[in-house]
Structure formats: C-alpha cells, structure tokens
C-alpha cells in the first residue's frame, strides 16, 4: 500500500481523481434541483402573509426598497406555524395555553398511535414467523413462504373495497366488536407484514444456529436461547422493520381516509388533505402544515438512514 501512495500534489493530475471531482460537481447540481421543491416549501412556511402574496414572487423575504438582498432586513415569520397550532390561553392546561389546531390536537396523535401500534405488532409477528421460517422445516413451509412472497407486492388499493364492506358488515353486527382504531391497525399490519416477514427471515438466516446450539449445551432452554442469544443479534433487523413500517403507516392516505368512519379518528394525511381544501390561498399555512406533518419521518430517516438502505435493498432483492 505504502509504495503506491502518490505525492499529495499529484491530486489534480490523476485522471481518476479529476473524474471524481467532476462527478461530485455534477451530483451537487442534481442534488440542488432535487431538493429545490423542499427548500421552496420550507422558505414559504417561514414567510409572512404579505411576502407570500407578492407579485412577482420573491425567493427570500430579505429585500428592502434600496437593496435586493439585505440579511439584516429579513422578515422571517412563524405566523404560518402559529396558525396551524392555534394555541389559545387556557386555564385548565398546565402550560397556560392549549393547542386547538385540529392537525396537532387530533390528526397527528392519531397517526402516531397507528404508526407505533402497527410497527410494534408487525415486529412481534414478523420476528415470530421469520424465526420459524428460518429455523424449522414444517408441512407447508415452502408453500407459505412463497405465498407470503407473492403477496408482498400487493397494493392496498384493490383490497380497499372489500375491506370497506367488511368494516360495514362488522359494524352492523349485533355485538359491538368493531372499533375504528383496531380495524385500521390490523389492516396496516396485514399489508406491511409480508415484506417484514421476509426481512426478518433474512436477518435470522444470517445468525448462525451454532450459537443457539451452544446456548442449549450450556443449559439454556429453547426459549431462553432465542431470547438471550438470537433476539439481541437480530435487533438491528427488527429495528429496520419497525422503522420501515412506521414510515409506511405514517404516509398512508387512502385506507386511513376511507376505512376510518369517525372524523376524529382519521390520520394526519387525511388532515393534510382536508386542510389543503380549506386553506389553499394561505400558502404559508399549508407549507407549515406540510413541514410539521413530514418532520417526524424525515428525522427518523436521517437518524437511521443506514438501517433503511439495508432493509430496502434486502426487501428489493427478495421481492
């Protein structure tokens, strides 16, 4: 290695490195254009109404009568956010104010509940069946596995009508067993399970079974071996399943809109759609709502991006 190292000044004369520099420059430009719509939304969300409705539009609200751009004169504003929050003084709340915007008060907590609930359910079910598929051979093993692979790609859309009518039938039963929240979480679990089972199986396959056998020899029982040896090793995989499901449920729109009957139980994407209909003329309000609703998934992704890439390549290669 050492004798191959070039002197530092040869940097720009090496063809390969010049190519790399060029490629990085091109990628930077591509990146700029790809992120432009997001940047525009962020900018709008921090403008005040008077700057949003200017003709022609200004990119930065930083112009003065004398200068086109003056950093000290920027009129950034959180007006849009405040109007989404709709915070009002309240005597009963411990903070002294209450948030009355439907997006934060109703829709986002609903979505959080559905996303966390579904992810937890999917992780438990997928790790159980993924482990079984990975470790045991049983009657119907391959048939079931192939069946799950085949329905991995099935989109929700074509089942919506059946599910909707199923919900109607369940609601009309004389025994009140129907509950919007349980129903939607079950539906989401059913749709995000197949891929998760495959991802879980892949992760369990990668853990040598000798480790478990050694634990058995050392006096652990099967359940103990699974809980103490295999499960901790599979944690990154289960984390990937959890996060992938979380983002998928968070972003789902049509099932949450159509299958949930009570308006107060509908998720944030419905809230967003509803909000758009009422506020399209107030761009800074709509943009602020977008940022608030999208922020959790973006943050989750940025914190755990390697986990996402790994899970996605795993999922894409399998099915």
């Amino acid at each position: 290695m050492a004798q191959n190292r070039r002197p530092l000044l040869a940097f720009l004369t090496s063809r390969q490195q010049r190519d790399a520099l060029l490629v990085n420059a091109v990628l930077l430009v591509v990146c700029f254009f790809i992120l432009l719509p997001i940047a525009a939304t962020l900018l709008i969300s921090f403008k005040q109404d008077a700057d949003v409705v200017r003709k022609p539009p200004v990119i930065f609200p930083c112009d003065t009568p004398t200068a086109a751009f003056d950093l000290t004169a920027c009129r950034w504003s959180v007006e849009g956010y405040l109007r989404v929050f709709l915070a009002q003084p309240s005597e009963t709340s411990p903070l002294g104010f209450a948030i009355n915007g439907r997006m934060l008060k109703i829709y986002l907590p609903n979505t959080m509940l559905y996303a966390l609930g579904t992810s937890a359910a999917v992780v438990v079910l997928a790790s159980m069946s993924g482990y079984a598929f990975s470790r045991f051979r049983f009657r119907g093993h391959n048939f079931l596995l192939n069946f799950i692979l085949a329905i991995t790609g099935v989109p929700l859309l074509t089942n919506l009508l059946g599910l909707y009518q199923m919900g109607a039938v369940l609601r009309s039963l004389p025994v009140p067993i129907y509950e919007d929240r349980i129903f939607i979480v079950t539906v989401y679990a059913g749709f995000f399970l197949p891929l998760s089972v495959w991802i879980a199986k892949g992760f369990f396959d990668a853990i040598p079974r000798e480790l478990e056998e050694a634990a058995l020899v050392d006096g652990c029982d099967r359940v103990g071996g699974f809980l103490r040896i295999t499960l901790p090793l599979a944690t990154p995989g289960l984390m990937a399943i959890f996060l992938l499901t979380f983002v998928n449920v968070w972003n789902e729109f049509l099932a949450g809109y159509l299958l949930i009957t009570k308006n107060d139980l509908k998720p944030a994407m419905f809230g967003m759609y509803d909000f758009l209909g009422q506020n399209l003329i107030n761009a800074e309000l709509v943009a602020a709502a977008c940022v608030i609703v999208a922020l959790p998934t973006v943050v989750v992704f940025l914190l755990a991006r390697e986990t996402f890439f790994q899970a996605m390549v795993e999922g894409a290669v399998k099915g």
Binding site: C31, A40, M269, C290, V293, A294, R305
Partner: peptide
C-alpha cells in the same frame, strides 16, 4: 464512479422518498 461521495448524496436524494405522496402533491402545488 470511484470517489463519488455516494453515501452523502444518497442521504440527500432520499429525503423525497420519506415524504408522503399527499405531501409531495402539496409541495408541488405550492
């Protein structure tokens, strides 16, 4: 390409993927 900062760019490129299609529609509408 060898030497491309692909990890860095992949992270930035991927932000649209975590946005819901409803949100993307709104962003493009704005």
């Amino acid at each position: 390409v060898k030497g491309a900062l692909s990890r860095f760019y992949m992270t930035l490129f991927f932000i649209p993927w975590v946005l819901a299609d409803i949100i993307v529609g709104v962003v493009f509408r704005l």
